[in-house]
Amino acid sequence: MDFSGVISNHYGAFLAGAGMTVTVSVVSIAAGMFLGLWLSFGLISRNRPIRLPSAAYRSFWRGTPILVQLLIIFYLLPEIGLDVPPVAAAMIALTMNTAAFQAEIFRGGLLSIRPGQVEAARMLGIGMPAIRVRILIPQMMRLVLPALVNETISILKNSSLISVIAVTELMRTSQQVVSVTYRPLEAYTVAALIYLAMNLVLARAGAWFERRYAAAR
């Protein structure tokens, strides 16, 4: 075992890899949230031409492995004339994936808000866009916060898959460290500990937000 050698000679690489992991995850979660919000209202729409495509999208992205999705996006983009770097393909794939999961989370949250609240708003002349932004989404976000933290943790872990399309995030970094040090156990253990540390921070942040919201009631 030689942790100190692996860490002291390569900590810069590990940090850069972790930075890439965080960047890709944060971008995907944020963009996926935006997309997922739209999608969740599509899923509960009474309008079939809106609801059915939304459900089909959700089912595809929830029902196929991320690795497969990633490779399809990676090879599809050049085919349709979009020459983007692998990291962009990775962000697109993760965004589209998490959008489906987040939409499903949001849908559950929205359904638990009593329709009477919307009727009261409509009787006061408040339009549907304002009802969504000012009445439904704020309440729903509080309800789904724990599920959203779970989804973020899962995207952060699954981002390790994008190493297969040569994005130098934490996982690929540790593979590169292995190839020069021949210390797989140490290198992967360091990677695991960094993932764990990031997720613990996330979980703490989530708990903090939950307490804050609970206090505001």
């Binding site: 009593r114 009261a120 708003a121 009445i135």
Partner: peptide, 22 residues
């Protein structure tokens, strides 16, 4: 103006917030 059996207030807004929203 409509008043409902189950009030239908918005729980994330204060009493004043409920009145000022519209």
């Amino acid at each position: 103006g409509m008043v409902f059996q189950h009030y239908n207030l918005w729980p994330h807004k204060t009493a004043l917030g409920n009145v000022t929203e519209a």
